[in-house]
Amino acid sequence: MRKTTPSQDFIRGIWNENPVLIQMLGLCPALAVTNSVKNALAMSAATFFVICCSSVLVSSCKRFIPNEVRISAYILVIATFVTLADMLLQAYAPVQHKELGAFIALIVVNCMILGRQEAFSAKNNVYRSLLDAIGTGIGFTIALVMMGGFREILGTGSFLEYSLFGANFEPWVIMVLPAGGFLTLGFILLAMGFVEQRKKTKTTLTAEQSP
């Protein structure tokens, strides 16, 4: 196991191991609620809150959690913060809460969050865990905003509700429907795979393997 510096902990989740685009975790919210940038941002904010709080709590309490029940304990921690996020959003951003609907509650089963607890927070100190959580949260936000932007631009012809093409724009209805989420994710992964492949053939280095 290689040692990493704190800055690597932070950067890693943002791009090299982007939870959605590379690790393919947390796809459910990434597909479901990215029909506009605003929704994507609200979802990212809720997830960001949950992952940061959970990581801090799990890494600071790791000594008291017996190994046999650690998963249940992580879920408990995550579920608590999700419930908090749910109530706070409902109170202070009711419109967004209605748009996101059940997907807020489903942050509990976002494997990205549980994955970070199990793979990182349970083994590292609070500071590193927080850095890791922030990095992952930012990576998640980037992926969601990318998808939300693509879908909103084609699906409603606007970005952050600012109209880009004028009133006569013909919206691609499919892009704001669930099918558009799959299409968009496919497009982004296709583009990333394409770039990755070209990079590989260019450098033809075997050291490319591990990030």
Binding site: E170, W172, V173, I174, M175, L177, A179
Partner: peptide, 10 residues
């Protein structure tokens, strides 16, 4: 099918 889903009105 894509056109039907993307431009249902047209």
């Amino acid at each position: 099918a894509f056109l039907q889903a993307a431009f249902p009105v047209a």
